[in-house]
Amino acid sequence: MTAPVAHDAPPDGARKAAAVPTAFRMTAGRISLDGREILRGIDLAIEEGEVVAVLGANGSGKSTLIRALLGLIPLSGGSTELYGSAPARFRQWWRIGYVPQRLSVGGGVPATVREVVASGRIARQSRFRPTSAADRHAVSRALAEVGLGDRAGDPVQTLSGGQQQRVLIARALAGEPDAFVMDEPTAGVDAASQRHLAGTLSGLVRAGRTVLLVAHELGPLEPLITRAVVLKEGCVVHDGLPPHAVGAHALPGHDHVHPHAPEAPQAATGGGMSGWSDAAIGSRRTENLDL
């Protein structure tokens, strides 16, 4: 529940998060599906600019957790917040880029790679306005970023599993969100493309984006990860440095158990309308992809 903004000093403890931009927060979260308790006692806060990996065995509840954080699954107890609002009250959905675990191919009606990627712009488009040049530009950029520019006109149904995964990533990139929520973005993706994805993400992270991803193998993403949350049978059993943590990569200002504000408030980037950082574009130029 978000109280209406008060301008006087808030009562102690009531709004301790006010100064710290928290992208995702779950408090005492519990989730039951079909009468079975899938997640319990989840307390999690992901600050802006963090790169968090959710790890755990199959069926440990990783996908359920991130879907619940987005408000896609109702909680049976506790609460979640997106940028300080309950999901039902949240209005800035363009700030979120969701990459589901797999591509859903609607009923066999063909859709081209470009059509699917372009749908990532939907949260930024208004109903009565036709697709703009900025929309098209962002889509082309996202396609190039995942190395699928030459397949733009092909039906997604005809792509391989790893290529479909990259279509999903491109769809999220096209929306130019502030926070990426990715469910196994690298599953089935070849090593070269994984390295490229890592390059793309590191550019985005440098520009202040938040990343929350599920993975079994971190692979080339590992150096980016600032924090790992490990799930086991629906409980958080580890929250801190990634398992093979390399201290050098941990950002200052993060403690091991419950990171609070990063020192520099990166939220001042003005809502992420500006697109990707130069760093991201640079990394695209320098990385050569053979696909």
Binding site: Q92, A123, R127
Partner: peptide, 22 residues
Amino acid sequence: AVFGRELFVLCQDEEVARAAGL
């Protein structure tokens, strides 16, 4: 004509549509 873009996302993947705030 007016809702086609949103309906495309909805009919493709309802969960993604929700995560886009539709």
